[in-house]
Amino acid sequence: MSEAAPQPIRFLLSDMDGTLLRADHSLSQRTIEAVRSLREAGVLFSLATGRPPRAMRQQIEALGVDLPTAAFNGGTIVNPDGSLLVAHHLPATAALTALALFADRPDVEIWVFSGDDWLLKDPHGPMVPREQHGLGYPPVVVDSFEPYLERISKIVAASDNTELLIELEARLLPQVDGMAQVSRSQPVYLDVTALEANKGTALVTLAEHLGVPLAQTAAIGDGGNDPAMFHCAGLSIAMGQAPEEIRRQADVVTGSNSEDGVAQAIERYILPR
């Protein structure tokens, strides 16, 4: 966790699900207006999420984001024109290790993201409707993930059994150490991405690209993939509903996503600077 500094914030990087977005994946009008106020004050604003680039477009348009955005926990950074600024794929060895660990578990659904494609073998999994609603597009059903091994952006183990995902995370981490990142982006999602794919690296890359010192950046989020950017930002902000271990790693805590916590943070901690 970085120390809060009295410097003006020139760039805010925000998580999406559980942070900017409410539980129904919508943006509140107050949040839209708060981001507009940021932009009018000359503060740069962008997004960092575990989502694929295609699943960010509606929010990018609604918020008027005109900067590069970070998808797949920072594994892919996309310019406003759709071109790639950064792209990191999961090593095939790490992908095979994760897929083998998650296989044949009746309460775990395995999803593979390759570019903008959401790939799965079972389209009838109980978690699929939720993900399709959040992403805004349907999955591609495949018989095997093998043809995609050289271009996997993210693997997700999805389950309502949070304790099982915690166990799988603990088991997978030492198996892919030095090869991949493993984190629970949400309580029901365990993400596996390239080693270079983390929001901290994304924040550093974007700040450098924009010419903003890290001391004048802020980051806000709620999940296990967000402390990586907390540790790099000049000001780190946790959402009110975030687990205690996430809140502990932030400089300040704002309201929950159901209470327009992002807007509260902008109004209280960023604009006054």
Rank of each mutant, 00 (worst) to 15 (best):
M1Y: 08
A5K: 14
R10S: 12
L12W: 03
L13G: 00
M16Q: 11
M16Y: 10
G18H: 04
G18V: 03
G18A: 01
T19M: 02
R22T: 14
D24A: 09
S28K: 08
R30G: 02
T31G: 10
T31K: 07
I32V: 14
I32A: 07
I32P: 00
V35D: 06
V35K: 05
L38K: 01
L38R: 02
L38W: 01
F45W: 02
F45D: 01
S46Y: 03
L47P: 03
L47I: 14
A48V: 10
T49E: 05
P52G: 08
R54V: 11
Q58G: 01
Q59F: 13
G64I: 06
L67A: 04
P68C: 08
F72A: 04
N73I: 01
G82R: 06
S83E: 10
V86H: 14
L90I: 01
A92I: 03
T93R: 14
T93S: 14
T93A: 15
A94W: 01
A95C: 05
A95W: 08
A95R: 07
L96K: 15
A98E: 03
A100G: 12
A100F: 02
L101K: 06
F102Q: 07
D104I: 01
P106E: 15
V108M: 02
E109S: 12
W111K: 00
V112R: 00
V112I: 05
V112D: 02
G115L: 10
D117K: 13
L119D: 10
L120I: 12
K121T: 15
D122K: 04
D122Q: 10
P123M: 11
P129L: 07
R130I: 11
Y137T: 09
P138Y: 08
P139Q: 08
V141H: 04
V142L: 08
V142G: 08
D143E: 13
S144Y: 07
S144H: 08
F145T: 05
E146R: 13
E146P: 00
L149D: 05
R151C: 13
I152E: 12
V156E: 14
A157I: 04
A158C: 14
T162V: 15
E163L: 15
I166A: 14
A170Y: 00
L172Q: 09
L172V: 02
G178A: 07
A180H: 12
V182P: 09
S183E: 13
R184W: 02
R184F: 02
R184I: 06
S185I: 05
Q186A: 15
L190I: 11
N198K: 10
N198W: 04
N198M: 02
K199P: 06
G200F: 11
T201A: 15
A202F: 11
L203F: 02
T205N: 05
H209K: 06
L210S: 06
V212G: 05
V212D: 10
P213D: 06
P213L: 01
P213H: 05
A215W: 00
A215Q: 14
Q216F: 01
A218V: 03
G221S: 07
G223R: 05
G224C: 12
N225F: 09
M229N: 07
F230L: 10
A233R: 10
A233W: 09
L235H: 09
I237D: 07
A238E: 03
G240E: 08
A242S: 04
P243F: 09
E244Q: 15
E244P: 00
R247Q: 15
Q249G: 02
V253E: 08
T254C: 01
G255S: 12
N257A: 03
S258W: 09
S258Q: 14
I266V: 11
E267K: 01
L271P: 03
L271S: 03
R273S: 10
